[in-house]
């Protein structure tokens, strides 16, 4: 129910490079899992509101007060490549 082409399309959306063998393997495994998941179709959800947050939590907002705890060095220290305090990446426009 999910073939290799579909797997490759999904992998592209998710920015995952897959080789042929991985694509075939995922096609089979995901088909198995989705085959199982299709049992959801049996549940009668007519008129049911979808749920995202499962606990009764009151919304609390943040006050509009500026705060900064870290220096710029701390924030970019994990970056693989920088130029000054900017993050460097391969060309966005090629």
């Amino acid at each position: 129910m999910i073939d290799k082409d579909k797997v490759l399309h999904i992998a592209k959306l998710a920015r995952l490079h897959l080789n042929e063998q991985e694509a075939s393997q995922y096609a089979k495994q995901l088909s198995d899992v989705l085959g199982y998941i299709d049992k959801l179709n049996q549940a009668d959800t007519q008129g049911v509101e979808p749920m995202v947050t499962a606990s009764p939590i009151e919304t609390v907002y943040r006050a509009d007060e500026p705060k900064m705890d870290l220096g710029v060095e701390e924030k970019i220290k994990n970056a693989p490549e920088t130029s000054g305090h900017l993050i460097k990446v391969p060309p966005v426009v090629s």
């Binding site: 500026p66 705060k67 900064m68 870290l70 710029v72 970019i76 305090h85």
Partner: peptide, 17 residues
Amino acid sequence: CSCPTTFEAGDNENTCP
């Protein structure tokens, strides 16, 4: 997040995790 929105700031200065 609580980062300031000031227009003038050094590169990546008005940022946080």
